[in-house]
Amino acid sequence: MAENKKQLVLAAMDGKDVARVPSGFWFHFLDDEVGADAFRDPSLTKHLLAGEKTYIEGFRPDFVKIMTDGFFHYRSEQVEQAREVRQLRGLKPLADDDPWFTAQLAYAKELTRSYGDDVAMFYNIFAANTTFRFMQPVWEQGEALLVSFIQEDKETVKEAFDVLSTDLARLSTRLIKEAGVTGIYFSLQNLLGDGITRAVYDEVLAPGEKKILAAANAASDYNILHICGYAGHRNDLSWYEDYDAKTINWAAVVEGIPLEEGQKRFAGRAVLGGFGNLASEVLYKGTKEAITAETHRLLAAAGRRGVILGADCTVPRDMDWKHLEWVREAART
């Protein structure tokens, strides 16, 4: 009987015994995944779909993280143009038929229709914090701008981000119920800056993030929380220990917190990751022997239940797929 990869991954997320430990890796398909705007240029979605399908059909991954290159931005000129915190006041939610919903639902359906019966598919959703930053003219400056907004008027940020998070929650629900995705891959990270303590984060940002997860969990038992350490961004994982998600993925290499420690921190929930995602690390540049050895080392430490092998974050676009297959092969033994 052919292996059912969807059942394999869901069993791993449930912490059950599995015939082999599954793995999953992903990469961007557009040249400028942050600045690309598929709402203004629908041809970008065709390019994205083509890349997704080539990877799924060519590599046959154990599960799919549905990449959202071109969909990083929230469709709100008010948020996009806000350079002062007062400009966020009075933000209204999007209509149900806004292209921000319909275009993403159509994109997800195109993938689930073809592959959703055989492979688990998790749609990438960014938290309001990250979404706001990606919408800035220079996205790397978005964190400092958001910090300044919170320092000046955190109540306005709370109200605006509640609207944005509510729409992200609505999108998550619709993706699961209408588009047939297995669940969401929910990406967030600590906000860094003067005065942004755990208490401030819990007051301003955490409520919206938990609202999104609650909506996704009401629609599916299988959702993944990604604590993003992309580009070396350091996070205090303790901020998210009470976030409700079936599986937790964090930057194990960046944070220096291996899978077995994360299992303890997150109360035995399933963990995803283990490998670094940079071109300087073994997954990208290693030999078959080195990648096999690292796979065996990770599993010897973390065990084989409630474990999915993956990377800190998105791997380079030119990753040799053979390296990913070596991980899968090594995880069988």
Rank of each mutant, 00 (worst) to 15 (best):
G276Q: 10
A36F: 02
A103W: 01
V200N: 06
I196Y: 12
L49T: 02
N190S: 14
L188N: 02
L259M: 13
G180R: 02
A290P: 01
P61S: 13
P137Y: 09
L168S: 04
V204C: 10
Q141M: 11
A311W: 02
A103D: 10
F122E: 07
E260M: 01
G142F: 09
L94N: 04
F63K: 06
D320L: 14
G24S: 14
K53T: 14
A179G: 06
V307A: 11
R20W: 05
D37Y: 03
V163S: 01
E241K: 13
D312G: 03
K210F: 04
V34T: 06
Y243R: 04
E52P: 00
D244F: 07
N190L: 05
E110L: 05
D244C: 05
G35M: 02
N223Y: 12
K288A: 15
R89S: 12
Y240T: 00
G24K: 02
K5R: 15
T182N: 06
E155C: 07
L237F: 14
E261Y: 10
I176L: 08
A215M: 07
M319V: 13
L105V: 03
N217V: 07
G208D: 10
N277W: 05
A206L: 12
R60E: 11
E3Y: 11
F59K: 03
R75G: 04
E152M: 10
N217S: 01
R297W: 12
T45D: 08
D221Y: 11
T112G: 05
T173D: 08
G286E: 06
A231R: 13
F186C: 02
K6E: 11
F39H: 11
D202Y: 08
F149P: 03
I308N: 04
R304C: 12
S114N: 13
T173C: 07
K288I: 08
V138I: 13
L225D: 01
L192W: 12
A331I: 00
T295D: 07
D244T: 11
A219R: 05
Y222N: 06
D312C: 06
P207L: 15
R297D: 06
F39D: 00
K5A: 08
E140G: 12
G180Q: 09
A231H: 13
Y284A: 07
K158E: 12
E143W: 09
E255I: 00
H28C: 04
A50P: 00
T130Y: 03
V85Q: 06
V138H: 11
R174I: 11
E329R: 10
K288T: 07
E261H: 13
R305Y: 10
F25I: 03
D318F: 13
V271L: 15
L30S: 01
A302Y: 07
V254E: 04
A160Q: 04
F29R: 06
R297G: 06
Q189C: 13
L309I: 02
L309K: 01
L48E: 01
F186T: 01
S280W: 09
L168E: 03
D202Q: 15
I248W: 00
D41A: 07
K46Q: 14
L105M: 09
D96C: 04
L91M: 13
L309R: 02
